[in-house]
Design a protein around this nucleic acid. Sequence first.
DNA 1: TTAGCGTATCGACAAGCGTGAATATTTATC
DNA 2: GATAAATATTCACGCTTGTCGATACGCTAA
Lengths: 116, 116
Amino acid sequence: MDLGLTPVQTVACCSPLSREPLSQDVAEQVSLVLKALGDPVRLRLMSLVASHEGGEACVCDLNDAFDLSQPTISHHLKVLHEVGLLEREKRGVWVYYRARTEALANLASLIGGTAK
Amino acid sequence: MDLGLTPVQTVACCSPLSREPLSQDVAEQVSLVLKALGDPVRLRLMSLVASHEGGEACVCDLNDAFDLSQPTISHHLKVLHEVGLLEREKRGVWVYYRARTEALANLASLIGGTAK
DNA sequence: TTAGCGTATCGACAAGCGTGAATATTTATC
DNA sequence: GATAAATATTCACGCTTGTCGATACGCTAA
């Protein structure tokens, strides 16, 4: 079933939790996305980026929002990126992360949705 | 901020991720719920219960759906219960778990919502 | 080229987590 | 009572994960 898609892309193609039992394969993919969000720091990072103007934020801004080392923040951003929740773009020395709002929307409808 | 509420109850009272940055306190509570769902087995358990007729299922049925020991399933159900995603009711020797669909809906609107 | 800055990677460590075997608890039946 | 069945708890064991310090990489400006 895996075609090199990121976990978030898998989320887009299935009925909500309450509609029918999740297959093991799908559950494994979706759980990766939820696990990525299941950390206070990453959840705040995601929220900071998503609520920032333009839906994107520079790493330099994000570092200052936490009492954590720069490598730690970088690590969390990588986790969110690998799972497909954040896009990464480098501009000069700075790196900007953008939230994939459709991914969040898909995840939301999988969790709480009733349709499809 | 904690008043003895379960983590899912905390989810109900805040704006979506993309609306404004999550506070650290809220992020900590919400991440507990997401962490609970961030496991393939628990995600399937949640889906099995939620999609079952009447929105509830007996543990006896759930055990058979996995290649895992009974204590392990019991453990996962406990995690989902403690976080407030599942309600527990004992009828005779059997235990039934029911999905809190409003909790799922609240979580969904926090993740993917734009309103409020 | 060198220096400096922003970001990522590596290595290591403690803490947390999923799992099963053994055991306990609760309820129904004999 | 005793026995059996359904579910929960305890304990122990690897594996994963969050964190930081040290270091490397990439870009820009002197």
